[in-house]
Amino acid sequence: MALLSVDELSVTFGGVHGRKESTAVDGVSFDVDQGQVVGLVGESGCGKSVTSLALMGLLPGKGVKLGGRADFDGNNLLTMSQRELREMRGKEIAMIFQDPLSSLNPVVPIGVQVTEILQRHRGLKGEPARKEAAHLLDRVGIPDPTRRLKEYPHQLSGGMRQRALIAMAVACAPRLLIADEPTTALDVTIQAQILELLKELVDEEGTALLMITHDLGVVAGLCDQVNVLYAGKVVESADRHELFAHPMHPYAHGLLESIPRLDAPRGEPLKPIRGSINDRIAWADGCAFAPRCDYYTIECLTGTPALTVPAAAGHQVRCVNPVREPVEIATLETPDVTATAHGGTSA
């Protein structure tokens, strides 16, 4: 069995004080194995963050209904007590958020925040804890770690803060790391450093990584398995090579054809998906994507389409008319940026 196995997870908000119920996560299933990177990708509001908060037990208790299961190492996270969850968080499962500033305590030096974790979960104190903290900062590429430990979060740059947060997340060698848009607030050159760091963690420590992002580029470079979410449901789930070579759900297919690519030649108009996420119908009535879909037929309105493996396909798709054509995009040749072709430093 996989390290984390999420089965039909659903999260419904509201229903209290006469407020209308709304289902943010609507029967999501996926597995994450040791040493594997699994991506959850989709647009704003599709339920990515709510999924991760549900797994971490960080949703408010009131006005939230949870359904399904999420087994971590065989134990259902959704039915654990707050105490058990607290024990689990930080030690077995760690999380990195988009905005590192909001998840660091602004009035406590970085060093104290790291050593606190080491004391709580690993029983380290005093000098050994400080040494280990410095080692952790060094590990994530923070220069001059001993000095940095004395500094406050606002004294670090955005990229540095995200590194500090990763250092804290990996302090107890968690088996599962959940990263919610960990690089969205960062510049691309810093993003590249952080993504490389995450890759190293997975390769070296065998950490399981659940990567949440809206950026298909990040997914393409990092994730082994990709789940595309739309309006709270997984609409396509595939190995990354499969997904990018043969996206079969009209939404995934449309996205890949519509986003401007860095390596696309100039002059070709983009092929947008029409409408917006607000143009949708309830899953109970049919396919939520139907109002925007070019492949729509009347069959799409007979209840929720099932997530199935269409004939001659290697992955799961939630669509009654899956797309068979490949994605059509012209690209420029990949440049040789270090000019190693002339001399050769790296090979």
């Binding site: 691309v188 590249a192 580029g217 393409a220 470079g221 040789d336």
Partner: peptide, 21 residues
């Protein structure tokens, strides 16, 4: 900068050389 921008295509991502500043 160019080499750091992720491209939504695993084949290109692997065929690309990247400079990490």
């Amino acid at each position: 900068l160019m080499s750091a921008v992720p491209i939504p295509d695993p084949v290109v991502e692997e065929a690309r050389e990247r400079i990490l500043l």
